[in-house]
């Protein structure tokens, strides 16, 4: 084991009883034999993965292995890509997301998403956050809406920074603030599951730390799935980790196990930096 993975192990030890409390929680998402095809090209092969509630699940793996693709299956974002086909069964809260009776808009309301690149709408900060609650009819009155906006900003740890410019354009914020604005936007619709696709890849270490703190805070109430290329990050924020390779789910387990004691050779190679 090299120095890098030793460092992970030490971090793991400090955070204490990580593995034990995840086991308690029921599974929020269960997927069985999920395969995804882009046209004729198969991007995911028979993925079976269960994601616990009120915890953070990290998806890691080399570039192009299908992490984003899997993430996008969970709120059916792949529907927006022409000629993308998903097979298999994905259940969120025991309900199949491909059930014809299930409204995809409602699903996306329940499963929020934060993207790799911060993508606030070119509108005011207030409008950015108010948009979701408004289209879902979550606010009964104007003051309701204001309350939602303020509490979302608060939860995203952004309120103190933008208090007095809440009606200025969201695109005027710094990259890290924009990303937290996107997180606030996602939690404003009161989702049960938040998907984050490399949320910190465009951020500096300080902004990253803030987002990570936020994730730590959010996991008390939400189920979070995060894709990351930083193994330190995965180690820091997640309780469970899944390793993908070439469209295959190689290994899944508690974060401490995956980083200290991987069963598969490929996992070990990846986390020790031998490829990826």
């Amino acid at each position: 084991m090299n120095d890098q993975s030793k460092a992970f192990t030490m971090e793991m030890d400090k955070s204490g009883s990580v593995a034990s409390d995840t086991v308690m929680n029921p599974h929020k998402v269960t997927s069985r034999k999920v395969s995804v095809f882009y046209g004729l090209k198969q991007a995911l092969f028979d993925i079976d993965l269960d994601i616990p509630d009120r915890a953070v699940m990290a998806l890691i793996g080399p570039s192009g292995c299908g992490k984003s693709t899997f993430l996008r299956c969970l709120n059916r974002m792949n529907d927006t890509i022409p000629d993308c086909r998903v097979t298999g069964e994905i259940k969120v809260d025991g309900r199949d997301v491909h059930d014809p009776d299930l409204d995809v808009v409602e699903l996306r309301g329940r499963v929020g998403m934060v993207f790799q690149k911060p993508n606030p709408f070119p509108k005011s900060i207030f409008e950015n956050i108010a948009y979701g609650p408004r289209i879902h009819g979550l606010a009964r009155s104007k003051s309701d809406l204001e309350e939602i906006v303020i509490s979302s900003l608060e939860k995203a740890g952004l309120l103190s920074e933008v208090k007095d410019r809440i009606h200025e354009p969201g695109t005027g914020l710094s990259g890290g603030q924009q990303q937290r604005l996107c997180i606030a936007r996602a939690i404003a619709v009161n989702p049960e599951l938040i998907l984050m696709d490399e949320p910190c890849s465009a951020l500096d270490p300080i902004a990253t730390a803030k987002v990570e703190e936020l994730i730590d805070e959010l996991k008390k109430n939400y189920c979070i799935v995060i894709v990351t290329h930083s193994m330190q990050q995965a180690a820091r924020v997640s309780q469970r980790t899944a390793f993908f390779h070439l469209g295959i789910l190689v290994e899944e387990g508690s974060t401490a196990d995956i980083f200290t004691n991987p069963t598969d050779k490929r996992t070990q190679d990846y986390i020790t930096g031998r490829f990826g």
Binding site: V105, R108, G112, I135, C182
Partner: peptide, 18 residues
């Protein structure tokens, strides 16, 4: 129009016409 804007919209659960 950057695709990220559309994704953002879909991501918070806006329908196609929204």
């Amino acid at each position: 129009v950057p695709p990220s804007i559309r994704e953002g919209g879909y991501g918070v659960g806006a329908s196609k016409h929204q």
